[in-house]
Design a protein around this nucleic acid. Structure first.
Lengths: 301, 301
DNA sequence: ATACATTACGAAGAGCGTAAGCATG
DNA sequence: CATGCTTACGCTCTTCGTAATGTAT
């Protein structure tokens, strides 16, 4: 009767699955238990939270849904943070990256770290941006690398998922991928503002998400007709090379992709930025890598 | 057995009171129940969390203690946010302010709001900075005003207590309070960096906290011999006028205090900043006040 | 010896599953 | 009428308080 965590968990699951029975199966409860959980939560908060048949959040439920997932994540983060103290693997480092964040600079820093401690076990996992922070918070990764676009020397607007520290790891020019035979591919640079009506590929987990570009350019343009899920850079390059649409990536990375030409983007003045994300108490190897990258870029925040 | 909220609550209470029995009394449990709560939490996390006799956090407990209060606050915030939907008082606005945040500009905006909706009930409460955000999150206040110092047009570094939106409400020059007969009182301006070794009063809930000044000036100076608690501006002025020490306040406000002379501070270039804090869904009168202040300053973030 | 935490134990209650009810498409 | 949420009910496990036990200052 006091907004217990398992009630919140099933509440979220119910609305995720848009079904009581689905949530029950997912959580290993019976339908009945789930029903009772929701009822208990509703009784506690004194408001109906979910509309049944079809299952959907009421206004109050929607409000709670703005808080609940973050709460549960932070709960896991707290547990993970305590667990880290005991199961500290001194010779292990797992790094969660978004696709365009794993560049030469980072790889060289990793090599340097490996040279310093040869026995170090390295795990690198590339995944969607939101997942990176979550992995760091729940200690499934020791360190995260998130990329995105922002005005020069501005921080990335990371979602407030929990208590993390961020540090600028790299700033690179932003580029647009054109098929090599595209008329604009020969330009020295292009204006993003001239491309609002162009055909774009939205590849939020690989390239810069279009809604980020929209936000930064303060425009309603950049409407995609092609969507690309996953973190597969070369697949995205193939789509772009085939003329299916444009995509934005950091210039040094984009220049290495086959079949496409990377043209620097300006107007508005934007950079592709990579940030290192870690918790308040990184493991020893993680701390070393942070130092290496921070020392290299000397752009602490 | 799954890190339930009430376990966390008693865990925090135990370490707050540095005593099981004290926490028990505070929470309305028996000693025994508290003991069982702590034991359950320790069993769940697989680590000893508190050292008994004397009661103190173990390393793992300290780690958990970095998360638990924030978690509990966010839990209350979530509950409050849902409750707000129902118990919305359309003709009521309560405003939580830190001491130096409630200035003429704000008062005039309030007057304007009152003129627009004459039936509006206004509650204004002045309190410590940390309490302001907490009050907003838990819906004990509809809107918060927090003041502090920062580099010009930088945001204040507010503690990450929960999901809030902030908005610059005012930026004013920073001033140092001198007794009127002080040799430096006749100066046009003073350098803060020249005053690191001076006698300061630390009045964290009224003036700018000294540790903030230290952080911003990147120095170890500004060590106080006098501490002042509470939010009593005139009391602080009296101490400063009596020569007990210096204090930093926004210039327009400082200039109105009796017995002291306010001298603008520069070097490093700092401003006194006031920020408006509200949740994602302010009440209607709160939204109006935000608009009034935002329109007036036109410095949205 | 005296606080004060822990352990033992029984009673009250919370939580889950089974199964019967009931509404909606 | 069938799918899927709700309610009734009983069993079990949890959680609390009382009281006895342990343990440091």
């Amino acid at each position: 009767m006091r907004m217990d965590t398992h009630l919140l968990r099933t509440f979220v699951a119910v609305l995720d699955h848009r079904s009581f029975s689905g949530a029950a199966k997912a959580l290993g409860y019976t339908q009945s238990a789930v029903s009772q959980h929701v009822a208990a939560l509703e009784a506690d908060l004194g408001a109906r939270l979910v509309e049944r048949r079809p299952v959907a959040p009421t206004p109050a439920g929607a409000r709670l849904l703005e808080h609940a997932p973050a709460l549960l994540l932070r709960l896991d983060a707290a547990r993970a943070d305590v667990a880290r103290l005991h199961h500290a693997q001194p010779a292990h480092l797992t790094l969660a990256c978004s696709a365009a964040a794993l560049t030469g600079t980072i790889a060289r820093a990793l090599a340097q770290l490996r040279a310093a401690t040869p026995l170090l076990d390295l795990d690198v996992r590339v995944q969607a941006r939101e997942a990176v922070i979550e992995e760091v918070l729940t200690a499934r990764a020791d360190l995260g690398l998130v990329d995105g676009v922002a005005a020069p020397s501005d921080p990335l607007p990371l979602p407030d998922l929990g208590p993390t520290t961020t540090l600028a790891a790299a700033e690179q020019p932003l580029a647009v991928l054109f098929p090599t035979d595209h008329p604009l591919a020969r330009r020295r640079s292009v204006r993003l503002t001239d491309l609002t009506q162009a055909q774009w590929i939205d590849a939020p987990d690989t390239a810069v998400p279009l809604d980020r570009i929209r936000a930064v350019c303060r425009t309603e343009g950049f409407r995609p007709r092609v969507r690309h899920r996953g973190t597969d850079l070369h697949g995205l390059a193939a789509l772009a090379a085939a003329g299916l649409g444009l995509a934005a990536l950091p210039l040094p990375l984009a220049a290495t992709l086959p079949g496409v030409t990377a043209v620097p983007a300006d107007e508005p003045r934007l950079v592709h930025r990579t940030e290192l994300v870690h918790t308040a108490h990184p493991t020893e190897p993680a701390r070393q890598l942070v130092d290496l990258i921070a020392g290299r870029t000397a752009t602490a925040q």
